[in-house]
Nucleic acid binder design. Structure first.
Lengths: 206, 206
DNA sequence: ATTGTTTAATAAACACTGTTCATTATATTT
DNA sequence: AAATATAATGAACAGTGTTTATTAAACAAT
């Protein structure tokens, strides 16, 4: 029964081809402005063909959002070489902010857009990608406490949510063009200064 | 020349009528899913008529976003009766979070969507609404420092951005359904706990 | 090799979207 | 009452996501 297997493989290859094209067009034109027809054009297939491989546009979005988390976790790998947990936390924040700035569209898809969450709601199980990432942060907070940085009574989940909220808020203000409230000066520099302040805050406050 | 004035008044009334209808449909169906035709239907006019009063859909969004800021600043008025600046800051955060939760769509429009910012870019001048709000926060931070709460060397703008980032991030995670990363429990309670922690952090850390 | 059957791909359509423009209806002025 | 200016619209354009009936290709059984 080699044929069934080959078909399976070909189906997977086609899915991959579509996702690759989708990713390319999305990153080039932005998510909102990309249509199924754009994606179909790029791989020289009919728009209807895409619906043989994906339920709807949201499912493509969901799949790309998954890819975004893979990419992000990849970029977190070098953190493992940092021994001190607090230094690792600081560096993780840096990498998170850097990832958001360098992958605006992807970050939007991962943490702001509704599309992937809607597909998730139709599926069984939870938001594995998000959970995996926040778990990393929670464990890191735990390590920091164990190493004597944070107060013993602090709840890890609460601390993780607080830290995540801050970095997510910071990059979202930037990505969504709301740094305009500060009239002049360099946005990135201002973010840098804020991050330094926040780090000092959690060093002494959590 | 009473006619010209009446015409002017009628034009303004029509704009208001359209905005009112737009607001109603937007709030009921969500911003993304509302069309010019939906708005036109509600006021029993042709879709083309709307374009006699607004340049495009973005301009309607921009106008509604302005209304959102007015509403928010209205809700900040009671804060003035709080004498202690730090207590006022805490309460401002509370109100900010409350406003976001009770006006999800509006908050989205004010701080996340691109539409109003695109109209802004075509206009001269800056983002007055945003500036006014962040200025409130900056001045409040300044008051706190003067009252001996924060460190003397802390930059007000940096501190304000840091605080805003946190609350904005927190509500955005919630509004965009990303609280799912925490498996069980009440989202609002978790946010409450995080906010308490954050307040303690800035009390001792800024 | 020639059937019959399953699978893959598509063209065309449906019901939408924002937006424009020539045409019609109304209101104002002469 | 006729001429003009203003307001409102129907119809169209180019686009969207998605579905379906039809065609083309690949496979299975004879």
């Amino acid at each position: 029964m080699g044929i069934a297997e080959r078909k399976e493989r070909e189906k997977e290859e086609m899915r991959e081809l579509i996702l690759q094209a989708a990713s390319h067009v999305f990153l080039a034109r932005g998510f909102e402005k990309t249509s199924i027809r754009n994606i179909a054009d790029r791989i020289e297939y009919s728009p209807a063909t895409i619906y043989l491989y994906f339920k709807d546009k949201n499912e493509i979005m969901y799949e790309l959002h998954k890819g975004g988390f893979e990419k992000m976790l990849q970029e977190f790998i070098p953190l493992r070489s940092i021994m001190d947990p607090f230094a690792r936390l600081v560096e993780m924040g840096h990498h998170y902010i850097k990832f958001a700035i360098e992958n605006k569209e992807l970050y939007d898809l991962m943490f702001l857009m509704e599309a992937p969450m809607e597909t998730l709601a139709c599926k069984e199980g939870g938001w594995d990608e998000g959970e995996k990432t926040i778990d990393m942060l929670i464990r890191l907070v735990q390590e920091c406490r164990d190493a004597g940085y944070f107060k013993k009574e602090t709840d890890h989940q609460t601390a993780a949510l607080t830290i995540w909220s801050y970095v997510h808020g910071l990059v979202t203000i930037y990505l969504k063009n709301r740094m305009q409230v500060f009239e002049d000066g360099d946005d990135l520099e201002r973010m840098q200064k804020s991050y330094v302040l926040f780090i000092e805050m959690i060093r002494s406050g959590i």
